[in-house]
Amino acid sequence: MRTHDRHVFMCVGPRCTENGVQAQAVFEHMGREIDAHPDLCVKRTRTHCMVACRNEGPIVVVYPEGVWYRRVDEAAAGRIVAEHLIGGAEVSDLIFHRIGEGDTIVADHDIT
């Protein structure tokens, strides 16, 4: 196992995308994005349903920050890698939950 200071968990379904096919593709894309930066100390783990997406998956969780992202497609995965994992700035428009704070409301249509 490579040395890491962050751990990214990503749900690959089967409920968030049809049979988890699209979610698995996003997981693999995120892996390529992370691997493109060999100095980035991030471990990535696929999970099955985290029962939190409420039809807003796939879900990505970044620890130790405890930030939960929703609706993660390839573009969002790229932003999470570039902005959060590399740049240190959370991608606030994708966050729906934080450890210790509960669900985060970002817009009227968001999860409450």
Rank of each mutant, 00 (worst) to 15 (best):
M1H: 12
R2I: 14
D5Q: 10
R6V: 00
H7A: 13
H7I: 12
H7S: 13
H7P: 04
P14Q: 04
P14I: 02
N19T: 12
N19V: 11
G20I: 00
V21A: 15
Q22N: 13
A23P: 08
A23Q: 09
Q24A: 04
F27P: 00
F27Q: 08
E28C: 11
E28W: 05
H29N: 03
M30K: 07
R32K: 11
R32P: 02
R32V: 02
R32Y: 07
I34F: 06
H37L: 14
P38S: 11
L40D: 03
V42Q: 01
V42W: 00
R44V: 07
R44M: 15
C49F: 05
V51E: 14
A52H: 13
C53P: 09
C53A: 12
N55P: 04
E56W: 06
P58I: 01
V60H: 01
V61N: 05
P64R: 10
E65G: 15
G66T: 00
G66N: 07
W68N: 06
Y69A: 07
R70I: 11
R70M: 15
R70P: 05
D73Q: 04
D73R: 04
E74K: 15
E74H: 11
E74A: 12
A77N: 00
A77C: 03
G78P: 00
R79M: 12
I80A: 08
V81A: 12
H84C: 13
G87A: 07
G88F: 05
G88A: 09
V91W: 00
V91S: 00
S92G: 02
D93Q: 11
H97V: 01
I99V: 08
G100S: 11
E101A: 11
G102S: 06
D103W: 13
D103R: 15
T104V: 14
T104E: 07
I105H: 03
H109V: 08
H109Y: 10
H109P: 03
D110M: 15
